[in-house]
């Protein structure tokens, strides 16, 4: 579903935000991406989402190259950044319809999915409110619904649980599992190691732009907890 090969990105100077990073996300994977602040998680996710240029390497989504076929790649995926800066001048329902129009979601699918996800996140009565008047958590819920509305094959999430109330976080985890059970894949960053440990079948740990561990959760962490492994790798690798 997603293949990253030798991805390198620097922001001027010699400091590399991402350094020769390679990993593969298969259909059905819930792939967690962890690392300390400034390790290169967001840069990697933004490069995969096709919103950030990179210096070298290759990113393929379902065999399509993000650098040469960005529209076809984006048609198959959805991205939610760590801070949901949505269009504040639109209402929630206007935003969802805008995204659905861009992805060409049919009328019946759109109605069904908006109802399903908005009801699950308890957002339906508030969809006529301007996004500018919504709280951070509500904006995050609208962003999540907009990402799910076109049934993406690859879902990229940057810290998706920040700002969500416990019930909404649980709902999101349920939908993530459901999406992957249907053959889609999720690649997401998080600082909540317990969530990553319970939810993900694969995990990657990044430090200073370099991948220091990646693969099946059980193989990577062994008998230790993810937290123990993470702290050990971050301190000693």
């Amino acid at each position: 579903m997603l293949t990253i090969e030798h991805l390198t990105k620097s922001y001027g100077g010699n400091v590399k935000a991402v350094d020769d990073l390679s990993l593969t996300v298969m259909p059905g994977d819930i792939y967690g991406f962890i690392g300390h602040n400034g390790a290169g998680k967001t840069t990697t996710l933004r490069a995969v989402a096709g919103i950030l240029s990179f210096d070298s390497g290759e990113i393929r989504i379902n065999g399509k190259n993000i650098a040469t076929d960005p529209i076809e790649c984006k048609q198959q995926m959805a991205y939610i950044p760590d801070n949901p800066d949505l269009y504040e001048h639109l209402t929630g329902i206007q935003y969802l319809n805008f995204v659905a129009d861009i992805y060409g979601v049919s009328a019946s699918d759109r109605d069904e999915r908006i109802k399903k996800y908005a009801d699950a996140f308890e957002m339906t009565p508030r969809l006529n409110d301007l996004i500018g008047s919504c709280s951070h958590g509500m904006k995050q819920k609208i962003a999540v619904i907009s990402a799910l509305i076109h049934d993406p094959k690859l879902l990229l999430l940057d810290e998706p649980f920040v700002g969500l109330d416990p019930k909404a976080a649980h709902t999101l985890k349920t939908f993530m599992a459901e999406l992957c059970a249907n053959g889609s894949a999720i690649f997401f960053s998080t600082h909540v190691l317990e969530v990553a440990e319970k939810l993900c079948n694969k995990i990657a740990i990044i430090k200073g732009g370099k991948l220091i561990a990646a693969g099946d959760m059980d193989k990577v962490k062994g008998d230790a907890s993810l937290e123990t492994l993470f702290l050990e790798l971050i301190d000693n690798a």
Binding site: Q94, N97, D101
Partner: peptide, 29 residues
């Protein structure tokens, strides 16, 4: 403090083409 909208009730949503959606977003902005 922006006023809250009326309570939304799910009805059949109108849909438009990609270019119409982009224009509408731009015009509303």
């Amino acid at each position: 403090s922006k006023p809250r909208g009326e309570t939304f009730v799910m009805r059949r949503q109108a849909h438009s083409t990609k270019s119409a959606a982009l224009f509408s977003r731009e015009f509303k902005r």
